[in-house]
Amino acid sequence: RPMNAFMVWARIHRPALAKANPAANNAEISVQLGLEWNKLSEEQKKPYYDEAQKIKE
């Protein structure tokens, strides 16, 4: 299954978030990633939607 825009973004940002929160488990990191993603504007998300579309094609 191809990655969606959030997954493209999260793949880039997960390592830094995990390093900054070494005690957090994957579920907690995923929740935090979701919160951070939701704070982004549509303009900030656009490159990730574009990349996800390329992956689908």
Rank of each mutant, 00 (worst) to 15 (best):
Y49D: 03
K54W: 08
P47M: 06
A5L: 01
L35I: 14
R1F: 13
S30N: 14
Q53S: 10
E57C: 09
P22M: 03
R11P: 02
P2S: 12
S41D: 06
Y48L: 01
N26V: 09
L40M: 11
G34H: 15
Y49T: 04
P15H: 10
L40I: 03
L33I: 03
Q53A: 14
S41E: 03
P47F: 07
I29H: 02
H13C: 06
A20V: 06
E36D: 06
I29C: 02
N21T: 06
E28G: 03
K19S: 08
Q44D: 11
R1Y: 13
Q53F: 09
I29Y: 02
M3Q: 07
V8G: 01
N25V: 03
M7C: 14
I12R: 08
A16T: 09
L33P: 01
K56V: 09
A18E: 15
P22L: 04
V8A: 05
A27I: 10
P15N: 08
K54R: 14
P47Q: 05
R1H: 12
V31A: 13
A27F: 12
I55T: 07
L33Q: 01
A52L: 08
P47T: 06
A24F: 14
A23G: 14
D50C: 07
M3V: 13
P15V: 12
I55M: 12
M7R: 09
A24Y: 12
W9Y: 13
A18T: 11
P2H: 14
A23W: 15
Q44C: 05
N4P: 03
I55W: 08
K56L: 14
L35F: 09
A52Y: 11
A5H: 01
P15I: 12
A52G: 03
K46E: 04
V31C: 09
K46Q: 12
Q44N: 05
P15W: 10
H13Y: 11
S41R: 04
P47N: 03
P22I: 04
P2Y: 14
L35G: 03
A18R: 15
Q44T: 04
Y49M: 08
L17V: 12
E57D: 12
W9Q: 00
P47Y: 10
K46F: 04
Q53N: 11
Q32Y: 10
Q44I: 04
E43W: 07
A16W: 09
A5C: 02
F6G: 00
R11M: 13
G34A: 15
F6V: 01
R14M: 07
L17S: 02
V31F: 14
P47A: 06
K54E: 06
R1T: 12
A52E: 04
P22D: 02
P22H: 03
R14V: 03
E51C: 14
N38R: 14
I55G: 05
Y48V: 01
N4A: 07
Y48E: 00
I55K: 05
K56C: 13
N21S: 06
N25K: 07
K56I: 13
A52W: 12
L33H: 00
A20R: 10
Q53Y: 08
K46A: 10
A23M: 14
K46S: 05
Y49Q: 05
V31G: 03
K54P: 04
A18I: 15
E51K: 11
E36C: 11
P15F: 08
K46N: 04
N25Y: 03
M3W: 12
E36Q: 11
K45G: 00
S30V: 10
E51D: 04
N25R: 05
K19A: 13
N38P: 01
E57T: 09
D50A: 12
E57F: 08
N26H: 14
N4Q: 08
Q44L: 07
F6W: 02
N38D: 10
K19Y: 06
A24T: 04
L35M: 10
P2K: 12
A18C: 09
Y48A: 01
I12D: 06
M7Q: 09
E28N: 04
G34V: 15
E57I: 09
Q44A: 11
A5T: 01
V31L: 11
K56H: 13
Q44R: 05
S41H: 03
A24Q: 04
A23F: 14
D50Y: 09
K56W: 15
Q53C: 06
E57N: 11
W37T: 00
E57V: 10
E51N: 04
A24M: 15
A20M: 10
E43V: 09
K45D: 00
P47C: 05
K45N: 01
I55H: 08
K19G: 04
P2M: 12
F6E: 02
A16G: 08
S30P: 01
D50P: 02
S41A: 05
F6M: 03
Q53T: 08
N21E: 03
M7E: 14
K45F: 01
E43S: 10
N4Y: 08
A52K: 02
L35R: 10
W9I: 01
N21V: 02
E28M: 13
E42G: 05
Q53G: 05
E43D: 11
N26R: 10
S30I: 14
R1W: 14
M3C: 14
K19W: 07
L35K: 10
R11E: 14
A20H: 06
Y49P: 00
L17H: 03
R14Y: 14
Y49C: 04
E36W: 13
L33N: 00
A10C: 12
Y48H: 01
I12K: 09
V31R: 15
R14N: 02
V8Y: 11
Y48P: 00
P22S: 04
D50I: 14
F6N: 00
F6D: 00
F6Y: 09
P2V: 14
K54C: 06
R14C: 11
R14A: 10
W37D: 00
Q32C: 09
H13I: 07
P2I: 13
K54Y: 07
I55V: 07
A52V: 08
K46D: 02
A5I: 02
A16M: 15
A52S: 05
A24D: 03
E28P: 02
G34R: 15
K39V: 05
E36L: 15
E42C: 14
E43A: 13
I12Q: 08
Y48W: 14
S41I: 02
D50W: 09
N4V: 09
I29E: 01
P22C: 04
W37V: 00
A16I: 15
P22V: 03
P47W: 09
A5S: 02
K56S: 12
K45S: 01
Q53E: 12
L33Y: 01
R11D: 11
I29A: 01
V8P: 00
Q44F: 05
V31T: 09
E36P: 00
R11Q: 12
G34N: 13
K19C: 07
K19F: 08
E43L: 10
Q32T: 07
E42S: 10
D50G: 04
A10P: 00
M3K: 06
A16R: 14
N26L: 10
L40H: 01
A18V: 15
R1M: 13
P15Y: 13
M3E: 07
W37N: 00
A16K: 14
A5Q: 01
A27M: 11
W37P: 00
W9L: 00
A52T: 03
R11L: 14
N38H: 06
H13N: 09
V8S: 03
W37G: 00
N4W: 10
L17P: 01
M7F: 12
E42T: 11
N26Q: 12
E57W: 06
L17D: 02
P2R: 12
E43F: 09
H13V: 09
Y49V: 07
Q53P: 02
M3S: 08
A23Y: 14
A10Y: 07
K19D: 05
A23L: 14
P2A: 12
Q44W: 03
K56E: 11
N21F: 13
K45W: 02
H13L: 04
F6I: 01
S30G: 08
K39D: 04
N4G: 07
L17I: 14
K45V: 03
M3D: 08
A18G: 04
I55Y: 10
I12N: 04
F6K: 01
F6Q: 02
I55P: 04
A52H: 03
E51Q: 11
Q44E: 13
A18F: 07
E57A: 09
E57Y: 08
Q32I: 15
A16L: 15
E42V: 12
